[in-house]
Design a binder for these strands. Sequence first.
DNA 1: CATGAATGAGGCTTCATTCAT
DNA 2: GATGAATGAAGCCTCATTCAT
Lengths: 212, 212, 212, 212
Amino acid sequence: MLDLMAEAEPLNPARRRAPRADAVRNREAIVEAAAEVLAEQGAAVDVREIARRSGVGMGTLYRHFPKKEDLVRTVLRRDFSQWAESARLAAVDAEDPWAALADFYQQALTGYARHRAIVENLALTWAEPDLEGIQQLRRVIERLCARATAAGLLRPGVTTDDLLLLLISLGHAVQLTDECRPHLWTRLLHISLDGLRPGHRAPLPADPDQPR
Amino acid sequence: MLDLMAEAEPLNPARRRAPRADAVRNREAIVEAAAEVLAEQGAAVDVREIARRSGVGMGTLYRHFPKKEDLVRTVLRRDFSQWAESARLAAVDAEDPWAALADFYQQALTGYARHRAIVENLALTWAEPDLEGIQQLRRVIERLCARATAAGLLRPGVTTDDLLLLLISLGHAVQLTDECRPHLWTRLLHISLDGLRPGHRAPLPADPDQPR
Amino acid sequence: MLDLMAEAEPLNPARRRAPRADAVRNREAIVEAAAEVLAEQGAAVDVREIARRSGVGMGTLYRHFPKKEDLVRTVLRRDFSQWAESARLAAVDAEDPWAALADFYQQALTGYARHRAIVENLALTWAEPDLEGIQQLRRVIERLCARATAAGLLRPGVTTDDLLLLLISLGHAVQLTDECRPHLWTRLLHISLDGLRPGHRAPLPADPDQPR
Amino acid sequence: MLDLMAEAEPLNPARRRAPRADAVRNREAIVEAAAEVLAEQGAAVDVREIARRSGVGMGTLYRHFPKKEDLVRTVLRRDFSQWAESARLAAVDAEDPWAALADFYQQALTGYARHRAIVENLALTWAEPDLEGIQQLRRVIERLCARATAAGLLRPGVTTDDLLLLLISLGHAVQLTDECRPHLWTRLLHISLDGLRPGHRAPLPADPDQPR
DNA sequence: CATGAATGAGGCTTCATTCAT
DNA sequence: GATGAATGAAGCCTCATTCAT
């Protein structure tokens, strides 16, 4: 219901009247360029570089995103989403829930090494979990986790948060080793996945912080 | 004889190195303050903030460290070393090689969460491995790895690089979760350690990059 | 056709170069102010002083001239050119080739006393002769030299380089005496010009360095 | 009389008691080093460089010369004197007054090219003529001028100031061309000297500023 | 007195953000 | 609306001068 209302804006056309013509095109160009630049150089880039690459002036950029932070957020939302989606797709093909999980990690980590700003901002995962893209990612993992647990393929007590944290920490590892030791992180993934299988002696320590 | 005299500095105070009583104190204050600030805020801090906190003027700071980079390097060296040493000490007490490894990680990761600049610069581990502190860390891990392998407690094929990368990636995880979910990373450590034990079905994939 | 439209800028103001009405004004103001300040105080001035006098912020100044050096160069180019041009104009009126030469020196040295930065940078004449203004100056002298030589009014063997060096060294003299002995340099000019006339006993020593 | 009193300081030994032992040696070392550095790099050098080369600490340096300017002045005084003296000596050998003049210029300009600070500070010649070294120089020229005039070898009306200004402006020329066109200035000297001989058509313009 | 460490004002430059055109 | 020029607060670093040892 609420969602529908959110989209029902046209009901009051005089209010938020928007000549979408090129404004939309501009906004997209900005986000596209920003994504490129942020992936390449991290969030410390000069805003000018983004404006230059997107072909718009600084004024236009700042009209759409009043603060640099706003733009960064928008891009992160988008790229987190894309990331989540492509990793999800890599997982759905597998019939075996364990293979789905493994494929997910493989895909997520492979396509991920390039994005500096995402890695930099993974910190937001728990600190500020309202970033929509992160929620999406979490939902994908949630499903994979549930499937594998149901099939008895996952070590008892493993939570979505565990899997998410694993993803993040391996993501960082990928970033670090991508240029000089590009195969190293795969081994770490193997090790971690094996640690996620059931059948280990000791149970995991409790997580008293877990909400709920 | 001359050598002995050379060490008896007080006898000939004008000779080579004046004691520079306060210079040493200042230099230490600078490094101390810088370590604090770098740990808190990462390497992007204003040099002025470091000067302010160490209680010296800009000139003094720049006399000891002609470039900001020099100071950062010095602090990183020091803190990597301290880190390595305290983690090593945590490991030597344990008779069981496996326990030594586990204790090492536990200690290393616990004392580590606070240091932003170190996390930022872990990237240098492979890219620029001449940072002395990193070498120290690597040597500690090397020994632990050898011990556990010799005792047959470590999964075949696990290398120092694997263990180092694990440390780094878990370190990052600690940093991210330290404030909001302080117990989460312990579970990941458990999982990873279990993945490092022998007895898993599939062997690790090869690491073609491994020098030698 | 397209070219014509391209020049009819107002027709398509968004096309290539927006007129940047004030940008041009600002740039000129900056150069103007810089010229003033450089003339007064030499190249060691604080950039802020230039910004202040031109009425723009630091950012604007650095947008137009990314390095202080760039601004200095621009001003020197401009002022050398102006200098060369006004001196040339002073020379063309004279029918007598010798008078042309004398008028040139007179004018060049008179309008020149004020400019500290130019004097400072005359050193570039030979060391870095690609400064456009210097080339212009040299070409003016070249022509005067050729004319006077052809008319047999110039001492045999006198080259453009000689005349240029004379200009420079007298320029320096002007600078030094301008405030306290404003008429002194004129006498030196007389003396030097007389030394340039033909009819002296000994020929000039050779210049083995002369290119070609 | 006054001079004698100035040297009679020892009459009141309790007043300006001075342990000359190494203080004098230090002062000399400073001046020596400063002269070197100033000649090489001009007056813009870092005071530290001078302290380093003279082997004394900053404190000592500043005890002898409370301002950088004081040290620079002292050096200039000294080097102007040396310069004047060596040029004078080059002149006294010649019996012919004209040759004396020519030798003087030749020697003065040859030994002079190296000294950046002197060239930079020639401006003081008229602006601040109390620099003792400059007075010395002037006296040398005065004598040469008088001799040549008396012998009828100098163009009528040429003054000490003319000759001094010529020296300065040629000095500047030497500096500029010394590295790239080391023979160029000699030609200019020839030209100027020829301009100084008697027998030219027009008399020199008057110098109404001439004191006295 | 000598030493050289300490001081801090001031210089150049960058960049997020605002504003005139 | 779009444009890109303008703004100015920081940021890094240097160096004449002072001061504790």
